[in-house]
Simulated assay, not measured.
Amino acid sequence: MTFASFYEAYQNDLKNRLRKNTWVTKSSIIEKKILPYFGDKRVRDVRPIDILHWQNTIMKTKDENGMPYSPVYFKTIHNQLSAMFNHAVRFYGLPDNPVAKAGNMGKEKCGEVLVWTKEECLQFIAVLKDKLMSFYAFETLYWCGLRLGEMLALTPADFDFERKIIHVTKSFQIIKGEDIITSPKTEKGIRCVLMPDFYADEMATYIETLHLAENDRIFPFTKSYLYHEIRRGCSASGVKRIRIHDIHHSHISLLIDTGFNAVAIAERVGHESINITYRYAYVFASTQQEVDAKLDELIVKNADRIEK
C-alpha cells in the first residue's frame, strides 16, 4: 500500500471520530507537509533514515510570509506523521513506527510567553470604548478567561445574571468559509464561569441594548477582526503587543496573583488536566519574582525576631 492509499484508509477510519475543526487541521498538515514527500512510497518501505531526511526538508520550509516556522509547529507536523504510522502499526500490521526510531523534530512548547498585567489590560481596554463590541469582547477574554472560539460562540442564553455565571458549552469556528459551532476544545471546556460583579452588571446592560434573540451570537465577527483590534488597541494604548490567546494566559496570571490554587484555575479555564495548569508556571516569571521577594522579606523578619 502506498502512503497516499493509506491516507485514504486513515481518513475513513478517523474522520468521523474527530471534531470537524480538528480533522481539518490534521488533514491540512498531512496533505501539505507529508503526502508530497511520502505519497508514492510504500508504507512498509519507509525507514528511519527517510524520516530524518523528511525532517531536514521540513525544517527548511517557510510560511507564506517567508518566515521560518516555530519549533512548536515542527513538533505538530512530526506528531501527525507519527500518529499515522502508529495507526498503521495498530490496525494494519505494520511491524513498527519508523518515526519513533528517527527521533523528534521541534519541541512541545515555545519559550517565554508574553502576558499583560492587570494595569496593562485596563490601559488597553480603555482605548477600545469607541467600539463597544470590541470593548466587551476583550473584557470577556480577560476577566472571564474564555478562549477566543468560546467567546465568539456566546449568546444571551449562555448568561445567567442572577447567579452571575456564564455557561460555556460551545466554540465558534470558520472552517473552509462556513460558520461552525462545535463543542469546546476539551470535555472540561464545558463549564460554568463565575463573572466578576462589575462585568456581570456591564454585560447585562450591554446585551439588553443589542435586542438579540436568545441564540444570536453576541459577538458576530471573525477572529481577523479581533486581530486588527488588538493591533489598534496596542498602538493607541502603548502596551506591549501580545497574541489574542495570550490574553487567556494573562487571565491565568491574574488568578495566580489573586491567590487561586491550581485546581481552581484548571476548573475555571477548562484545562483537561491539572498538569496543563502546572505547565503554565513558566509563563509567569514576574509572579515568581514577587514570591521570591516576599519570601526574602519574610526570612529577614523572622531573623530579626529570632535575634530579639
Rank of each mutant, 00 (worst) to 15 (best):
E150I: 03
A153N: 07
F135V: 14
L132C: 02
T155S: 08
E150V: 05
A153E: 05
A137C: 09
A153Q: 02
M151R: 04
E150Q: 02
E139T: 00
D130C: 02
D158H: 10
G145Y: 00
S134N: 14
S134C: 14
C144Y: 01
L146D: 03
T155N: 05
Y142T: 09
E139D: 14
W143F: 15
A157T: 02
L146M: 14
T140N: 06
T140G: 03
A157C: 04
L141F: 08
A137S: 15
A157P: 00
L154Y: 12
G145N: 00
L148D: 14
L152V: 12
A137H: 03
P156C: 10
C144P: 03
T140C: 08
G145D: 07
F159T: 10
T155H: 02
P156E: 04
S134E: 11
W143Y: 15
R147K: 09
E150S: 05
K131W: 11
D130W: 00
E139L: 12
W143K: 11
L146P: 12
M151C: 12
F138I: 00
K131Y: 15
L141T: 04
K131Q: 11
F138K: 01
F135T: 12
L152T: 05
S134P: 06
A157S: 09
L152N: 09
L146R: 08
L148P: 12
F135W: 14
E139G: 07
E150P: 05
P156T: 07
L154N: 11
F138R: 04
Y142G: 12
D158A: 12
F159A: 07
Y142S: 14
P156S: 05
W143Q: 10
E150Y: 00
M133K: 15
P156D: 09
F138G: 01
L132V: 02
L141Q: 03
D158R: 08
D130L: 00
L152D: 08
K131A: 12
C144V: 01
F138S: 05
M133Q: 14
F159D: 04
L141V: 08
F135A: 10
L132T: 01
E139Y: 09
M151K: 13
L154C: 07
R147F: 02
T155L: 00
L146F: 08
A153F: 10
G145R: 05
W143H: 14
D130E: 08
Y142H: 14
L152E: 04
G145L: 04
G145F: 06
P156N: 06
Y142L: 13
S134H: 11
F159C: 06
L148W: 12
L148V: 15
L152S: 10
A153L: 01
D130P: 03
D130S: 06
M133C: 13
F135D: 11
L132E: 13
L141Y: 03
F138Q: 02
C144T: 12
W143C: 11
L141W: 05
E150G: 02
W143A: 04
M133L: 15
M151F: 15
G149R: 02
F138C: 03
L152Q: 11
L148T: 15
G149L: 05
G149Y: 06
T155W: 03
A153W: 06
E139A: 10
M151E: 10
E139F: 05
E139R: 11
C144S: 06
P156F: 13
F135K: 12
D158L: 07
L152I: 11
K131T: 05
K131P: 00
L141P: 03
D130K: 04
G145Q: 03
L152H: 06
R147I: 01
T155I: 02
